[in-house]
Simulated assay, not measured.
Amino acid sequence: MGIPSGVSGAAAAEGLGEPLGDAVVRRAPSLLGGKRVHLYEEGLVLGSGAQVRRWADVTRWRSTVDVIVTTNEQGDRARYTLAHRHLLRFGDGTEQGFLLDERRTVLGPMVVEPFENLRIRSAAEHIRKRVAEARAPALLDRIGKGRQVTFGPLTADAHGVFVPGGLLPLPLGRDAGAVSRRRPAGLSRAGVLVAAAPGRPARPAGQGRAR
């Protein structure tokens, strides 16, 4: 199924970059179809109305990965599917959710991942990173003012990140610039806050939320 001309035109006009793939608002019977969400590098285009939303405008975000396991009638063959769910809230208070279902994969000694699944995981990870990058300045500003922020199961302040078992010291000082100068090698400013929070495709399930 190609991208409708109205959708591609709206994406081009808003500078959303290259398409990442399609998602649906919710699962629906195949005969009824589902409202499509067209995903791009810098945002999404919703349905036939071609409403554009940008990742940079997200103010709250929730990302989960569901694992769905099914077996045949004999119970000797199992398949699993990873379902990537995103719920976004934008600056004007509106919310938009969408769902990316991977293709079913047969469990066995040699698991061969369909190429389409790798593409979907790459798209989901790109969205997580772009939203995290957009949220990081506001979160770092709150930390710089001596406040705490929560991100998924984590809480952070100027001293570090609170994780189960205690405080993990990280360079989240009051000077936001200090994060750039002192962060661990290979960890972005956004990554300081989200490295352990969002769901990662490599694990069975995960969750991240920014408030």
Rank of each mutant, 00 (worst) to 15 (best):
M1E: 15
G2P: 04
G2D: 10
I3V: 08
I3K: 10
I3E: 09
G9M: 10
G9I: 05
A10G: 00
A11K: 01
E14Q: 13
L16A: 04
P19L: 05
A23V: 02
R27W: 15
P29I: 06
L32E: 14
K35A: 12
K35I: 10
V37M: 06
E41Y: 06
L46R: 13
L46F: 10
G47N: 11
G47C: 08
S48N: 04
W55A: 04
D57H: 02
R60F: 11
W61D: 09
W61Y: 15
R62T: 11
S63C: 13
I68Y: 10
T71G: 13
N72V: 03
Q74P: 10
D76Q: 05
A78W: 02
R79E: 10
T81E: 13
T81Q: 14
L82I: 02
A83H: 12
H86N: 08
L87W: 13
L88N: 12
R89F: 08
R89I: 07
G93H: 10
E95L: 14
G97V: 00
L99S: 05
E102C: 12
R104G: 14
P109A: 10
M110Y: 07
V112A: 14
F115Y: 14
E116Q: 13
L118Q: 13
R121H: 08
A124K: 00
E125V: 04
I127H: 05
I127C: 09
R130L: 06
A138S: 06
D141G: 12
D141S: 12
R142Q: 05
I143T: 03
G144S: 03
G146Q: 03
P153H: 05
A156C: 05
G160P: 07
V163K: 12
G166D: 08
L167G: 03
D175W: 02
A176T: 15
A176S: 13
G177Y: 02
V179F: 10
R183E: 02
P184G: 10
A185N: 08
L187H: 06
V192A: 13
V192F: 12
L193T: 03
P198Q: 06
P198M: 08
P201T: 01
P201Q: 00
A202L: 12
P204V: 11
G206C: 03
A210K: 00
